[in-house]
Design a protein around this nucleic acid. Structure first.
Lengths: 202, 202
DNA sequence: CGTTGCTTTGACCTTTTGGTCAAATCATTC
DNA sequence: GAATGATTTGACCAAAAGGTCAAAGCAACG
């Protein structure tokens, strides 16, 4: 029986600082490209101190990914089968685009992980993610069968939303290099909304 | 005056083997995640032998990126201002999707680079890439002004093609985890073609 | 205000990794 | 087939990086 002591104020503050710093560093350099020294420096802690709060580099990364996956899928979970189809989908798209704008580091953390073959979350993808997407794909199929939105491949429809919205976070430098001064988030929402209105009008 | 000796057969073979091996390793693990030992092993060479052909890890990576950037942008260059607008755009989309299917490692090499802020090719993006995209955006704008395709933001239109097509290479594991047995490249082309037909019909 | 347990750190260890070098081997050409 | 230059390698090096540990510093509570 190990007694679980309550978390002290210092622990709460330092753990939060570490995760914040780690998100910065991991999202910018990938898992292998990030170093404990960088993370410790960004969190204003010494390296041994950092390792007092998390047992290893992997543990920090895992904690981040686990905590984020839920947040990341919330917008899709919120897609309401009882709602007005087109509005539900546009709301989902909007929410995803807001996340790309407001949480780009989180998006890039996932992008790094997935591009490199998702070594750490492959199992989660094939179980949790797949079943969530399958469930929502059935909702979409129902809407299509009822003639409430146009008939398209439901899974690819979802992929298209992911790719179009996350592109603005993951490929931010490229987008901005091409766009120059124009802020992508000024013009992207209208473009993407138009796209889905045209695609999905029955 | 340094005399440039012609490349021997052995040199040609080994340099090619190294670049092939490096593409494998860099695209799978990112720059920092790849090691010279891995690349050397994949190329069937000893590490010092590898460094006889390329002076450093950076040099190998640079050689890959430089060689690939051109290939990567060829489909966009091929967009013909004199062609039939919708057909030109659909051909571009098709070509990009084929590249995702046939050259996924190349796509992931770029994805790794860009997600991490494009430290090595930032300058190229803001000069060469930007001017190519701007040029083609003007072509699109012309087509829109002439009423030959629907009016949408031309840059975002191009971004959408990049993101929709490259998603199938860069996020391959995720797509396959969600799709199960279905091959994404069986169903994606039809979905994407439909999408652009609906978006762009005047 | 001293004890207890939480927190922090300097010093250190080991492994990994990019890179060097001199010597050996191999190919080619005269 | 000897000489010349291209190719290959084992041994080695220094720096970076993940991680350990014992001791010191602090906070809080009785």
């Amino acid at each position: 029986m190990t007694r679980t002591r309550p978390e002290t104020r210092i622990q709460a503050r330092n753990r939060a600082a570490i995760l914040e710093a780690a998100l910065d560093v991991f999202s910018a350099h990938g898992f292998r490209g990030a170093t404990l020294d960088q993370i410790a420096a960004a969190a204003n802690l010494s390296k041994p101190n950092l390792l007092y709060y998390f047992p290893s580099k992997d543990a920090i990364h895992d904690a981040l990914l686990a905590g984020l996956l839920d947040t990341w899928l919330d917008p899709l979970r919120a897609l309401d089968p009882e709602g007005e189809p087109l509005e539900e989908l546009l709301a989902y798209v909007r929410r995803k685009l807001e996340m790309s704008r407001d949480l780009p580091r989180e998006s890039r953390l996932f992008a790094n992980e997935i591009v490199q073959g998702a070594p750490r979350i492959h199992a989660t993808l094939s179980s949790d993610l797949k079943s969530l997407v399958d469930e929502k794909a059935r909702v979409l199929t129902g809407w299509m069968a009822a003639g409430r939105i146009a008939r398209v491949h439901p899974h690819h429809l979802i992929f298209s939303i992911w790719s179009l919205t996350q592109h603005y976070a993951d490929f931010d430098v490229q987008v901005r290099a091409v766009l120059g001064d124009e802020d992508p988030f000024d013009s992207a929402p209208a473009f993407i909304e138009t796209l889905y209105r045209k695609l999905l009008s029955p």
